[in-house]
């Protein structure tokens, strides 16, 4: 969680310094969901992220340098600066892609799960998505298919109360956008505190156990909150300040630190961990900054298995 927080804060700083261009969607405040699930996964499990996927990518063990490098469009980036913030992918770490079209990755995740089921590999697929996704067709199509085919896939809705700028409750027929829909697919409604990493972890373990035993998919709604706006362009001013304050008091990291102290872990040890993480973020930043820009040629290649778009252009 600390690494996620450090990375996201740094991503924000790099934006402000104009070293990351375009846009980015930060998961500040939502670290417990990614960390809880990521820790419960097996190394060969599959993760599918949204455009708010830095945290979910990092928790699979992807080096920070490769993520920050990708954000800055550098040659050291995960995809050599061709995918960017919204498309982080690392096959060797099980991160099977980040998808910028809301809901698009849910059917794709179902397909990956079918592949694992067919090949009998015991791999479980996790698809993370936001509350806004629950109102798009692909969400429902994928859930239905996953249940019908009993696919080893876990659908994780991070309900941070706002789709982009509009409160999800304003535009949704039910109170809990994912959990209240579970019954429609014969699934148990699972609604959890997404800011409590222990709760998330236990929920994840149970869902993975179910999927690995051949008992099919789960749909989990984790309630959480975005500390910032939707994207780089959004200061998030549409949110009442009392609401923001109430959720800041539920910061997953502050609260977890307090829990650890209560369990007897001394402040010095925790402080050292925090300092180590900060040093790692700094080092990754500097390494990524030194990496060259990718060559122009990469824009035209990898369109097809045998090359680029020369035959067209």
């Amino acid at each position: 969680m600390l690494e996620c927080r450090g990375l996201e804060k740094r991503a924000y700083d790099l934006f402000m310094q104009n070293l990351v261009k375009g846009t980015s969607h930060l998961g500040l405040g939502q670290e417990a969901v990614a960390a809880g699930f990521g820790t419960a996964m097996r190394p060969d499990d599959y993760t599918f992220c949204t455009y708010r996927g830095h945290n979910h990518t990092l928790v699979r063990g992807v080096p920070m340098t490769a993520i920050l490098g990708e954000l800055m469009g550098r040659a050291c980036g995960l995809l050599r600066g061709k995918g960017g913030s919204m498309h982080l992918t690392s096959i060797q770490h099980g991160v099977m892609g980040s998808y910028a079209i809301v809901g698009a990755h849910l059917p794709i995740a179902a397909g990956a799960a079918l592949s694992a089921q067919y090949r009998k590999t015991q791999q479980v697929t996790t698809a993370f998505f936001g509350d806004g996704t629950t109102n798009i067709g692909a969400f429902h199509e994928a859930l239905n298919l996953a249940v019908v085919w009993k696919l080893p896939v876990v659908f994780v809705c991070e309900n941070n109360l706002y789709m982009e700028y509009t409160p999800i409750e304003q535009v949704t027929a039910v109170k809990n956008p994912a959990a209240d829909r579970a019954a429609a697919y014969g699934l148990k409604p699972i609604l959890i505190d997404g800011n409590d990493v222990d709760v998330v972890y236990e929920t994840a373990l149970a869902a993975y156990e179910k999927a690995r035993s051949g008992d099919g998919p789960s749909l989990i709604e984790a309630q959480t909150y975005r500390h910032g706006g939707h994207s780089r362009a959004d200061p998030g001013k549409y949110r009442p300040s009392e609401e923001v304050e109430a959720w800041l008091a539920r910061d997953p990291i502050t609260n977890y630190r307090a829990r650890l102290e209560k369990l007897g872990i001394d402040g010095e040890t925790l402080g050292r961990i925090e300092a180590d993480v900060q040093a790692a973020v700094d080092l990754a930043t500097e390494t990524a900054k030194e990496s060259p820009k990718p060559p122009l040629e990469i824009a035209g290649i990898d369109v097809w298995a045998d090359g680029g778009a020369e035959w067209r252009n």
Partner: peptide, 28 residues
């Protein structure tokens, strides 16, 4: 029935799940 799958009327899911299968080692 493991190799010939009847789907619901869900074009997005038919094509989307094919992408997931294809990217993960199958030939849908």
């Amino acid at each position: 029935d493991r190799r010939v799958l009847d789907t619901p009327i869900s074009e997005s899911a038919i094509i989307g799940s094919s992408i997931g299968m294809a990217a993960q080692g199958l030939r849908p």
